[in-house]
Computed example of a mutant assay.
Amino acid sequence: MSYKFTYSIYRRPFRQPLKTSHGVWKIREGIIIKLTDSLGRSHQGEIAPIEWFGSESIDRARSFCEQVGDRITTTQIHQIPDDLPACQFGFGSALTAFSTTPAQTASHFNTSALLPAGEAAIDRLQTLATQGYATFKWKIGVLPIDREVAIWHQLMAVLPANAKLRLDANGGLTEIAAERWLELCSQAIRIEFIEQPLGLDEIAKTIELAAKYRTPIALDESVATFDRLQIVYDRGWRGIYVIKPGIAGFPWRLAEFITRYQLDVVFSSVMETAVGTAAAYQLASELKIERSLGFGVADWFDD
């Protein structure tokens, strides 16, 4: 089947820069695509790359859209190469929307709110808790570890009794620092997991740490794209997988892999718009994902 194809590029400034161990992110750029069939029905998809996470760059995604022209077929969508995973998801989710019934809306899911790095997280956590959030993610590996540990103690003091905290290192910890965090958190039952403590290639050491400490470990950068996901599973990781659908390739392929191996999955945002978020929620509903989804990021943008 052939579809009329149009697209538009957006630039969304963050309300405040997002600081991670990878650096500072000030503007989210992406592409909204639209497919229209012969009956006049239209569905949107979103291409929201994060190059430093392993996807294509926004320039490569824009170049691909330019090359498509004003029409694209189902066969051409299925042939989008694996080095364009954000394009695969954007086109793939728009295509599948023609044959699926819209699933549950965001209100049916528990979501995890993203806190700012550093001390600003303390006041923000208390504000978000009054809005009903019960799971929070805080970036570590951004400041010196002694300072972050001190802030962590303050966060735990204001964390509601029924809430959970996820610590996300974005692969920015040394092995010594990772062990310190894992030991600190081992008696803190409200710590859901530490996310990507070591670099994306340090799978063997991460598996060792997961066996050594009570604190659960989740992988994020190491499983960011579909090929990485396969490699990490084949190397023996059986812990938590934090998957960003927006850069994980074709949604049907991702769903089949998660289902086949019964992975323990968290879906997480790539700071996309409502278009990409809706596609991720659709997939989460189909897979019946139970862990809180990491999409509590709306307050990071003014729009």
Rank of each mutant, 00 (worst) to 15 (best):
I217L: 06
W252N: 06
A248Q: 06
G236F: 07
D220F: 11
Q230E: 13
G239C: 01
V232I: 14
L219E: 03
D264L: 00
T273W: 12
S268V: 10
T277K: 13
I258A: 04
W252D: 12
G276C: 14
F257E: 06
V232Y: 13
Y261H: 15
V275R: 06
T277D: 02
D234H: 06
T259R: 14
M271D: 04
T277A: 04
E272W: 14
Q262A: 15
P251A: 00
F250K: 11
E272Y: 05
V232Q: 08
G249I: 14
T277P: 01
A278E: 12
R238Y: 02
S222Q: 07
P245I: 11
V242R: 00
F250V: 04
Q262T: 12
E221H: 08
V232A: 11
D227G: 10
A248T: 05
T259N: 14
G276D: 14
I243S: 05
I247W: 11
F267W: 11
F267L: 15
E221F: 12
A279R: 01
D234C: 08
D234T: 12
F226E: 00
F226Y: 15
R228D: 10
W252S: 07
F267G: 02
S268M: 13
I247K: 12
R214H: 06
V265Q: 07
D264Y: 01
V232T: 15
P251Q: 02
T215V: 12
Y241L: 10
S268C: 10
V266N: 13
R260H: 08
L254P: 03
F226V: 12
D227P: 09
S269V: 15
D227F: 12
A278K: 03
L229Q: 03
W252P: 01
T259K: 13
T277S: 02
T225C: 00
A224N: 09
R235N: 14
G249Y: 06
V266T: 08
L254C: 13
V223H: 03
